[in-house]
Design a binder for these strands. Structure first.
Lengths: 340, 340
DNA sequence: CAATTGATGACAACCGATTGCCAAATGTTG
DNA sequence: CAACATTTGGCAATCGGTTGTCATCAATTG
């Protein structure tokens, strides 16, 4: 057990280990990455030396020579949207488990930032997970041709995707409201470029026609609590008795605004959100919303991406994954108010 | 304007540009990074070629040869804690503005994960921002000797820090409660390894003695809403009429539990939180809490780190920055209940 | 015991940039 | 026009690994 002065010198390299063991650097590399290609005895010696020198491989160098960076980019439109917290945690955990690093990028709800981030990531990451993409189908396809991509909540033929099945939950929400007696219902739409919003509206419109109730579309509204005020005013003005919001942020913002205006929820107006984000259970009143396994969606997206990166002999990887959703009924929905 | 088949081939390198212009690769490198070292005419030619080939430098290669990665690691104990959303956004924006990439790591409230992440980041980042570190002073100092570090909410001599001045806000909170007539008050402590929690308690205990009121310390509690239930029960059991929670997560959890138990807030019990996180304004009742410019704290930490990385001739960089805090009074605090 | 086979490890090229050093080209001055 | 100062740009080493190729040596086999 020799005394070692440690701490100040720069990190050890495979060359240091090679010199210490009297072998070539390439042998060290093989001993560490392809143990079978090296004699057990030398391998043990090398491993001991590596441990003693506290060696950790330089990821830049590894990336440069091997062509793989060991990193995966995760693009989210808005880091401060609680919806993405659990998603990010899901991807983070799964990536770490697989030995990958997560590169998190906030695209600020902008397609330009999204596109330039992807271009940059193309060199510094092995793959990209894109949530709620604002890009056109063509742009996404073109990007996917250059670097493996998995989308979340954005379904484009030819690009593997994890889709949270909010459209079907939206129908559930509609039935819930109908069963409470509502017949005049509004959908508070999300951004025009959001495919999720469009799909939900389509599902809702179809279901409404099927059930013979009237559902009108209001908006678009930005997915922020601040937009909730405008959404609330629009809903009140339109004369509906219930509304289904694009997401919980808008719904929670509506609750606040309705309270300010003295409109009681759910007595005067029912509100349904979507995503079951942090806060949906303790706002006032607690929000009826559509819940889904978001963290799991993150994990699944990582699995799908890694399957693309490391095609195993096993089965072909699925290119599409639908996450179930269910309606969580809380206090923000209730019977339709008695007629005037 | 020549037709170019684009899209499928691999990214262009400086060698491609060099070949196209009939110069050496090193000249291209200089033209792009040290324009003055190169003739204007060749530089223009090179820039044109670079634009035509859609050249973007390979960050790995640049990192390897220059020794700087252009990335900064940001360590947070829990990504899903809303407190960190704004912080992360602040660092992200400021880093992007300076041309750096953010490497976000969730250390899962674990000192071991934190230490190993730092070791890994040492090679892949130019500097690290550590929030609410769980490491010992010695470990932090040792790490800071190897790579530039800025801490947030963790003050260790010799390591630049951004500190949010919650201790003084805690005194404000105490005065607020005292002015409402409370004399039996509890502090719901955070994790034992959290320096912030200790500092707040010290400030609170000192202020309490000064004012002649009784403040008892309960806990520790994990900084999650789930812990709020235990905290609420402990507070009720201890017979206090008001409590100051380590953070908003615990406070919000307490609100939920107190409601379940039929204890009215603020009529029977006043609750003060800390951080003014997302949700503090729309929980029920809205939470009285200590607010601070969190996003700005993130920006400042980045500025301090970059000042370390690129020491300019200008003034020496500050090694400590105190962020102001103020009490935001909402509905969760009220007059002390009438005696029995 | 000679010959074939396989395991082992060294050499060197390469990934894409940066940078010190030096030679060639250019411009300036006496 | 010669001598010198200054640009300008090429060569080659370097960063820390990976990986194809090949020589060497030991073991197995006929």
């Amino acid at each position: 057990m020799a005394m070692q002065a440690a701490g100040t010198e720069r990190p050890a390299t495979i060359h240091d280990i090679a010199a210490m063991c009297g072998v070539a650097a390439s042998t060290v590399s093989r001993a560490l990455s392809t143990p079978d290609r090296v004699n057990v005895r030398t391998r043990v010696r090398i491993e001991a030396a590596a441990a003693e020198l506290n060696y950790t491989p330089n990821s830049q160098a590894k990336a440069l020579s091997s062509g793989r960076t060991g990193a995966v980019g995760v693009l989210v439109p808005d880091i401060t949207n609680p919806f993405y917290f659990d998603l990010i945690r899901g991807t983070q955990l799964q990536l770490k488990a697989a030995g990958y690093t997560q590169l998190l990028v906030d695209t600020e709800e902008s397609d330009e930032v999204e596109a330039s981030s992807m271009e940059q990531l193309r060199k510094s990451a092995d793959g990209i997970i894109v949530t709620a993409s604002r890009l056109s189908d063509e742009a996404l396809l073109a990007a996917a041709a250059k670097i493996p991509i998995v989308t979340i909540n954005r379904d484009v033929a030819g690009v593997p995707a994890v889709v949270i099945d909010t459209p079907s939950a939206t129908s559930q929400a509609l039935d819930h409201l109908i069963s409470l007696g509502h017949t005049r219902i509004a959908y508070m739409a999300g951004p025009l470029t959001s495919q999720s919003s469009t799909l939900r509206w389509n599902a809702l419109a179809a279901a409404a026609e099927d059930r013979g109730v009237e559902v009108r579309r209001l908006g678009p509204f930005a997915p922020k609590t601040q937009s909730g005020a405008a959404a609330a005013d629009a809903a009140v003005h339109s004369g509906v008795t219930a509304c289904i919001a694009f997401n919980d942020l808008i719904a929670i913002g509506m609750l606040q605004r309705l309270r300010e205006r003295g409109i009681r929820v759910p007595e005067d107006m029912s509100v349904v959100g979507c995503d079951d984000i942090f806060g949906a259970d303790f706002c006032n009143p607690p929000l009826t919303t559509m819940a889904s396994p978001i963290e799991q969606a993150g994990r699944v997206s990582v699995s799908m991406l890694l399957a693309q990166l490391n095609p195993l002999a096993g089965g072909g990887s699925r290119s599409r994954s639908l996450m179930p959703t269910h309606l969580t009924v809380r206090g923000s929905t209730g019977p339709v108010p008695a007629g005037p």
